[in-house]
Amino acid sequence: MTLKPAVETVQDHALPQVQTPRNPGMPLDLDWVAGATANTSAIERRAATLPGRRSIKKEFQAAWLLKAITLIDLTTLSGDDTPARVRRLCAKARQPVRAEILKALGMGPVTTGAVCVYHDMVETAVDALKGSDIPVAAVSTGFPAGLSPLHLRIAEIEEGVKAGASEIDIVISRRHVLTGNWQALYDEMQAFRQACGQAHVKAILATGELGTLRNVARASLVCMMAGADFIKTSTGKESVNATLPVSLTMIRAIRAYHAVTGHRVGYKPAGGISKAKDALLYLALLRDELGRRWVQPDLFRFGASSLLGDIERQLEHHVTGAYSAAYRHPMG
């Protein structure tokens, strides 16, 4: 297959965490897509045995959990979001862990990876995060179903970027996957990427609605070929969100894409990850399957709203030796 060279501009590195060249995409390779496999039972076995194979304890656990915090897209995607609610979330993103806990751990300040909101809250969030280097991510393109007219979905992206979002989480048209219309998926994804301009684009596959892991693998490849910076599991609104088997499938697709093109694409599991223990599993999976390089905010994010609270409790437990309570940690 022919590959475009990675054309980079200075602006491509606009995000503070970004250290790797953006994925420029490549021509749609239908042979590769058709040949993609995902053996469900084998993938499930690997996922099921992972918790038994990797255990992270004591100061290692504390360090990994702090790392997990820096990888969170702290998210609110509710119909009742208001400016005050979003400002509170942004304040939490700036200081996700109580200062004395960080001090006890010998750590400097940390922030979450980003704040993720609906379009109408972008300006509020950008304002609230001014001076913090924390990017604002906007869900877009008729999130979560993605069934509004294409030109409106593209316009929504442009509005989001204009409002100051530096990351755009788009939703793909599931029907293109379910009908095997890979060209349509590719074209759509390319259009979204183009509309994002310098903003990074995360492609939400809505894996809970794709039917099979093989579809997940194929959709992952097509979105990466069309230039997605990240591939993301779910909107958080499907009945099944991020799972380890889905994550393994997508991570393997990312690895295959990197092996062929040399480009690193990021991964974002979203929805249903609410426990510190689960976060550690995802990081171990990522580290083992893709390598440590991927365990950084420019290549990995958790889409989560309640995960942070559990991590805070675990960190305080590590510091004090006593199990913690939720009310001891400031609300986001």
Binding site: R54, F60, A62, W64, L66, L105, G106, M107, V295
Partner: peptide, 12 residues
Amino acid sequence: QVSEIFESLDYG
């Protein structure tokens, strides 16, 4: 140190 592991992401 926690801060070292934070960077290295070693297993302990």
